Amino acid sequence: MSGIEGNAGAARVDRDLAFEIEQFLYREARLLDAERYDEWLAMMAPDIHYWMPGIQARYRADRADVLSRTRMAFFDDDLDYLTKRVDRAKQTTAWAEDPPTRHFHMVGNVEVEATALPNEWVVHSLVHNLRHRNETEEQTLTARRQDLVRRDGTGALKLARRLIRLQQTVLQAKNINTFL
Rank of each mutant, 00 (worst) to 15 (best):
P46V: 04
D65I: 04
R15S: 15
P99G: 03
D98S: 14
L166D: 00
N7F: 08
P100C: 09
T169F: 02
T92L: 08
Y81V: 14
E135W: 02
D152V: 15
P99K: 09
T93M: 09
H128P: 04
R12P: 11
N109W: 04
A8Q: 03
L171N: 06
I21Y: 02
N7W: 08
Q146D: 03
L32M: 15
A114W: 12
A61K: 04
W51V: 01
D47V: 07
V127M: 04
Q146E: 05
S2M: 11
W95V: 14
A57K: 02
A160L: 09
L82V: 08
F179Q: 01
M106A: 06
H128F: 07
R36F: 05
N109H: 08
L130E: 06
A29E: 01
R133T: 07
H49Y: 08
W95G: 11
T154M: 13
Q168K: 07
Y37N: 15
M106K: 07
L25M: 03
A45V: 06
G54C: 02
A160Y: 07
E137D: 12
E28L: 05
L130P: 00
L159P: 07
T115E: 06
Q139P: 01
L117A: 14
P99W: 10
R12C: 10
N134R: 11
A73P: 00
A18R: 13
H128Q: 07
P53Y: 02
E97G: 04
P46G: 11
I164A: 00
Q139A: 03
V13T: 12
T92V: 09
Q91E: 15
R58A: 08
W121Q: 06
S2W: 07
A94E: 15
H132C: 04
T93G: 11
E22Q: 12
L25V: 01
T142F: 01
I176H: 03
R60G: 09
W40V: 11
V170C: 03
A114Q: 13
T178R: 00
G54N: 04
Y59W: 10
W121S: 01
P99D: 05
D62G: 01
R69L: 12
L141M: 09
N129H: 06
T178Q: 01
D98E: 10
L117G: 06
N177W: 05
D33N: 13
E120K: 13
F19M: 13
A45E: 06
D16K: 14
E135D: 05
Q172M: 14
K90T: 06
I176L: 12
L166H: 01
Q139V: 11
A18K: 08
Q139K: 04
